[in-house]
């Protein structure tokens, strides 16, 4: 919402002056600051000194504060954390792990292990690093049983309930709920009413496409894009302002083929404007088609030992070049594949 000029915003801005300004079409703060003080004086017949003093207060009140590079450097050094994924292959292609202050996107088709990866990372952060996690589940894919299993296998010496108590689960099934949830999270982090938020290091949104995909269904294309841009910004702001690692998952959709050898290719969902949101993107590709996976699982009697293999490719990152590695899903979460 644009900031309207109001009487009493600053001592010099009385209701009479405000009337004079609005009668000349200066209604918003940006209208006032964008116009030369001399011009306002001439146009509205106000004393130059008053115009300057109003301008000074408005600029101080509504501008963003410039941070000096040295201060920013010291702050960045003290707040940066790299969350290891416990899987050395994945850490290697991500240059040591998931970085705080960034949005990392895992994108892949169904059964490419996105939710498994999120749960595995969550358990790693709460179990190994003993930091807190907010897990925003938009698909109903979160399984507490699976989380407990991973915890038991990976940290046999720890009490499951105390490890899982570090996770806060939010279930959002539409855009509005997600927006409210993120807004609430930002507010809580800002106030830090309890220690849960002071050691919050990871926010997971699994998955963004499940709720944001519907932004194009109702309303116009521009409205949809606008919603995506503002939610994307909110996620990035959350990561930067509070030095949190944000992990999101996204689906793949088919796109027109770029090469002549195949009929269609795959691209991340949510369109062009979402591609600019994450700082790091990892594409996950299942080794086998879903139907083959089904056969493997049931043809083989030792089904509990079946561990699907996934190929992970770094698609976007400033730190690492495009490279790939193999992962597999085991009882203890995501591990190195062979």
């Amino acid at each position: 919402m644009p900031i309207q000029l109001l009487a009493g915003m600053c001592p010099a801005l009385t209701s009479e002056i405000l009337m004079q300004l609005t009668s000349k079409g200066i209604k918003q703060v940006i209208d006032f600051v964008s116009m030369d003080p001399e011009k306002i004086t001439a146009l509205c017949g106000l004393p130059f000194k008053k115009v300057l003093s109003i301008r000074r207060v408005l600029l101080a009140q509504y501008s963003a504060f410039p941070v000096n590079g040295l201060d920013l450097y010291n702050e960045a050094l003290s707040t940066l954390a790299v969350l290891s994924t416990s899987c050395s292959n994945l850490d290697e292609i991500l240059d040591c792990g998931v970085y705080t202050g960034e949005v990392t996107e895992f994108v892949g088709v169904s059964v490419s292990g996105k939710t498994q990866l999120c749960q595995s990372l969550t358990i790693q952060v709460v179990g190994e690093l003993e930091q807190n996690v907010v897990y925003i589940d938009t698909t109903g894919g979160w399984s507490v049983k699976r989380a407990a299993d991973i915890t038991r296998t990976r940290f046999p010496q720890k009490q499951v309930s105390s490890v899982l108590s570090r996770i806060q689960l939010c279930q959002c099934y539409d855009i509005k709920e997600l927006q409210e949830c993120l807004e609430q999270l930002q507010k809580s982090l800002h106030n830090q009413p309890d220690c849960f938020y002071s050691s919050l290091k990871l926010v997971v949104v699994d998955s963004v496409s499940a709720v944001l995909g519907s932004s194009f269904v109702s309303g116009t294309y521009v409205e949809g894009c606008s919603l995506l841009q503002s939610i994307g910004r909110r996620l990035n702001a959350l990561a930067k302002d509070f030095a949190i690692a944000v992990i999101i998952t996204n689906d793949m959709v088919s796109a027109a083929s770029t090469t002549s050898t195949e009929f269609y290719s795959m691209k991340p969902a949510l369109g062009r404007c979402w591609t600019f949101v994450p700082s790091v993107r990892v594409v996950l590709e299942p080794d086998k088609e879903p139907c083959q996976l089904w056969e493997c699982k049931y043809a083989d009697k030792s089904c509990s030992l079946f561990e699907p293999t996934i190929k992970a490719i770094v698609d976007k990152s400033v730190r690492s070049p495009r490279q790939s590695t193999l992962l597999k899903i085991t009882n203890a979460g995501v591990a190195n594949g062979t």
Partner: peptide, 12 residues
């Protein structure tokens, strides 16, 4: 560190 003193970042 000295060179960084001439750098300012603004997030809006």
């Amino acid at each position: 560190q000295n060179w960084l003193k001439n750098f300012h970042l603004i997030r809006c």
